[in-house]
């Protein structure tokens, strides 16, 4: 346990530079986005009212008030989110491969630590999780600030005020990243954790058996996916909707936990018996 905390902390420190850079990009691009989008709307309003002599009422009738949704739907807002997602996805692989490649072979050190080799797995998956939730938490802090800037720029007659929760639930893509209830957060990110554990196992297959390992990894992934959806397949094709929806849901959770345990066990086995430097 102590070694796990030390190693997880070590891994988090290793990713902190990339993490900070992505946070910085998100901060700057999103805030610039708020300003640019608000300006765009205000310039249009000015043009319509002064050059085309529209009254405020006429303008609002034609173009509606501006809501923060317009900012959210812009590339200014979604771009950094996509970048952070890509960053995490990329780092899932890099977190392992960076230890093997390059002049320094840190993997020797990791594998020779006087601790269970699964600790390495747990430390790395924890790092991915902390990084991901860190982005989510940062976005939740950033949003009220952006809303404040938005309020400061657009006069109240021209804007449709929204709270953070409304903004978050206004787009399905965003409400998956930031769901409305804690249960959903646990489920979504639990599913994410499961997916990462399967990918990690795949990576370890590749690291253990090289080319043949890629084949094994794909096979493992396919088996995991089939197993995971097996209750759904069973329900649809074998037992003819025998299960009530809630039972099916619980079965899915149990199946997810089984696969997660399976991934941990398999990774532990590979790290202990099959890994090669």
């Amino acid at each position: 346990m102590k070694n796990y905390i030390k190693l997880a902390n070590f891994e988090i420190n290793r990713v902190s530079k990339l993490f900070t850079v992505l946070l910085g990009i998100t901060l700057i691009v999103q805030i610039v986005g708020v300003i640019v989008e608000a300006r765009k709307y205000l310039n249009m309003a000015n043009e319509k009212m002064y050059e085309e002599m529209m009254s405020i009422a006429e303008f609002l009738e034609m173009f509606n008030q501006m809501s923060f949704i317009q900012v959210v739907r812009s590339v200014w807002f979604l771009g950094p989110i996509a970048l952070c997602i890509a960053g995490v996805a990329f780092y899932i692989f890099l977190i392992w491969y960076r230890d093997w490649f390059g002049r320094n072979t840190f993997v020797y050190r990791l594998l020779m630590l006087p601790t269970s080799r699964l600790t390495i797995f747990f430390a790395k998956i924890t790092t991915i999780m902390v990084m991901t939730l860190g982005f989510v938490a940062f976005q939740l802090i950033l949003l009220p600030i952006e809303l404040l800037i938005f309020k400061g720029m657009v006069p109240s007659d021209f804007r449709n005020d929204m709270g953070v929760r409304e903004v978050v639930s206004s787009m399905p893509e965003i409400s998956i990243i930031i769901p409305g209830s804690l249960l959903e957060l646990i489920l979504y990110y639990g599913a994410g954790l499961l997916a990462v554990s399967i990918l990690f196992t795949g990576i370890l297959f590749e690291r253990s058996f090289k080319w043949k390992g890629i084949f094994a990894a794909v096979l493992y992934g396919a088996v995991a996916v089939v197993l995971f959806i097996s209750p759904l397949l069973l329900q649809e094709f074998v037992v003819d909707h025998f299960f009530y929806p809630l039972e099916l849901f619980l079965l899915e959770i149990v199946m997810g936990l089984i696969i997660f345990a399976g991934s941990i066990w398999t990774s532990g086995f590979l790290l202990k018996k099959k890994i090669t430097v």
Partner: peptide, 21 residues
């Protein structure tokens, strides 16, 4: 660094979901 990140996660998500509830 780890302590700060985890504290921010707990506080930020905690506030959001307590508010939501």
């Amino acid at each position: 660094k780890s302590t700060a990140i985890i504290a921010v996660i707990v506080l930020s998500l905690g506030t959001f979901f307590v508010n939501a509830a």
